[in-house]
Design a protein around this nucleic acid. Structure first.
Lengths: 127, 127
DNA sequence: GCTTGACCCTCTAGTTACTGGAAGGCTTAT
DNA sequence: ATAAGCCTTCCAGTAACTAGAGGGTCAAGC
């Protein structure tokens, strides 16, 4: 199938698919006219990528996951390790964001939000 | 003071300070020899920026906040609006990250993580 | 046979917010 | 005189695409 169809089936944009090909994540056959020709298996890998990216794995994580996926002999602990490291990153981001949120909530609540210039948010930023 | 001192006092790297000057966020005087010369007020603005960035405001948010900060007549509701929009973004990110975390946790728990190839994480990514 | 429109191609540049490094000037102490 | 330490500018790279220009291909309709 051509790229449009592969895009629809994988939920990746055509631009993104070409980009993934550029950086060597996937490779499609070419027809005589130069058009990319995707097999069902290609689309399968694209969907794999789409899902992994949605789960927040970096493109580089994806590259590793994909090679592990392609290697039928790999140990599941190799995959688990990547996923765990990613979970730790997520936890750290959650902590940071929660702190930001709390600080900002306090500031927003204390700000009257009216036409007067006095504003605790700016005062706090200025310390 | 020179950039090194401004960097120490503001907790921004020298590179970052020069970058902020480049994009017109701050402006320092220059000495005869070309060195930047920061006033206490300049450092104050740099600290303002550092804190706002740590709270996750984008550089563009900072540009707005800074101009509101410099305008003694502005209404506090203008500031509150930016802060609120930012809070909404944080909430959305928190939701996304929490979902990712839950999905990944289930997958990691189900993966035996041993030397055998069978791995629920990859199986799930492949659907 | 020609045109129109949908589809495909490549290539360049822009995005965000910096960071690293090269090449070179200034200042101060030894 | 020279070394160390600070300062300058400029260029390139990071992550993961996205936008857009300029141009080829293909099928349908006149």
């Amino acid at each position: 199938m051509k790229i449009r169809e592969a895009s629809l089936q994988s939920e990746l944009s055509e631009k993104t698919i070409r980009y993934y090909e550029d950086i060597g994540l996937v490779a499609a056959d070419r027809r005589e006219n130069g058009y990319r020709d995707f097999s069902a298996e290609d689309v399968h890998r694209l969907r794999f990528l789409a899902r992994a990216r949605r789960l927040g794995f970096t493109v580089d994580d994806c590259r590793q996951l994909l090679s592990l996926y392609n290697d039928k002999e790999r140990a599941s602990k190799d995959v688990k390790q990547i996923a765990k490291a990613h979970l730790d990153e997520i936890d750290q981001k959650l902590t940071e964001l929660t702190e930001m949120k709390q600080t900002l909530e306090v500031l927003v609540k204390r700000c009257s939000g009216n036409e007067r210039p006095d504003c605790p948010i700016l005062n706090d930023l200025a310390q």
